[in-house]
Design a binder for these strands. Structure first.
Lengths: 194, 194
DNA sequence: GTCTATACAGGGATAGAC
DNA sequence: GTCTATCCCTGTATAGAC
């Protein structure tokens, strides 16, 4: 394996290890030593790839968003009606395997609230997500109101996922779908501003 | 001031200082030394009142819930129609001064996801909140569906508040009220289980 | 009931070797 | 590109004095 290939491999290993440990033990609880060790490398290698622990965190989150967008897009194509597509969105955030993501999301929020730079990056990521929701209208007519309410759509998904995590089963798919349906199909929900 | 009075005073000071610092710097970022110092005491006094940093955290959160329930109940009484009451709920979580609470909430979630005991206490607190929402039906008829959807109501409030924090103004009061209205007035939203 | 002093542990980041 | 060794800082919790 040439050095360049090893470098790419090391970066990937570090990102995976960091994602796992940040989710399991929190940002503060996951030491750079532990991350490097799980990746089969040492701290030296880690700092050769990322300037700081924070930069590593941002890289982890960015990679996660890209991966998820791809997966969700594919699942939306598989559904064959409006209900099915809304259910896909709910499934994406509520399935048990998303618990890891939710844990990481709370960590990032906690971190961002206190670090202006991190907050900017968090905001940029959500704006990107909102745009993705808005663009669903180009593909399916039932999302006609999604543009104006995209932040609310994401907020509802996030909030319901949280409740579902404290008490699994407390949120039914029907509840989620019906709430989302109200938001995506009402372009004028913001008020009667003509 | 007698010793008993001083003890009560010290406990109150510690709780206030802890709430402030946990919100400002995170649970991990707020040292017990800093908390004690802000309260005008020392670590010794802190450990005289709370067995550990975790116990202090739980006490802070419990106190916050009790205070908030009282405030929200009072504001609900002041509103004079259904829209107004839903707007009160939204105001309670979205006003700028609630940012501190939201920060603390993320901290607690991050903490709870990794600590089973803390998760139990978090769950118990949410169940208590859900019950409070359900009981609104006894007071106002428009909350007839709140019982079945209480977790969703709380989830929506939380999720929308989060979006409003990353991008202030992205969620209008109209959006929040309309979404909440769907949930509280639909006893059968869970599906056609008779 | 509260303070001071301290034991004890752990983490982020860097320097220099290979 | 990666490793080893180390600096330096900070934190939780306890012991014993007052």
């Amino acid at each position: 394996m040439r050095q360049q290939e090893r470098k790419i491999d090391t970066r990937a290993r570090l990102l995976t290890a960091a994602a796992d440990l940040f989710a399991e033990h929190g940002i503060a609880g996951a030491s750079v030593d532990a991350i490097a060790q799980r990746a089969g490398r040492t701290v030296g290698a880690l700092y050769g790839h990322f300037a700081s622990k924070d930069e590593l965190l941002f890289a982890v989150v960015d990679e996660w968003l890209a991966d998820t967008a791809t997966v969700v897009a594919a699942e939306l194509e598989l559904a064959d009606d409006a209900e099915g597509r809304l259910a896909s969105l709910w499934q994406a955030v509520s399935q048990p395997s998303s618990a890891r993501w939710l844990a990481l999301e709370h960590e990032v929020w906690s971190h961002a609230i206190r670090h202006p730079l991190a907050l900017d990056r968090l905001r940029a990521r959500y704006v990107e997500t909102w745009q993705g929701i808005a663009q669903l209208a180009d593909r399916w007519p039932e999302f006609s109101g999604a543009g104006a309410n995209a932040p609310a759509v994401v907020g509802v998904l996030l909030g319901l996922a949280m409740m579902n995590q404290v008490s699994p089963g407390s949120i039914t798919q029907e509840m989620a779908v019906r709430t989302l349906h109200l938001l995506i199909s009402s372009p004028d929900i913001q008020g009667a501003t003509p």
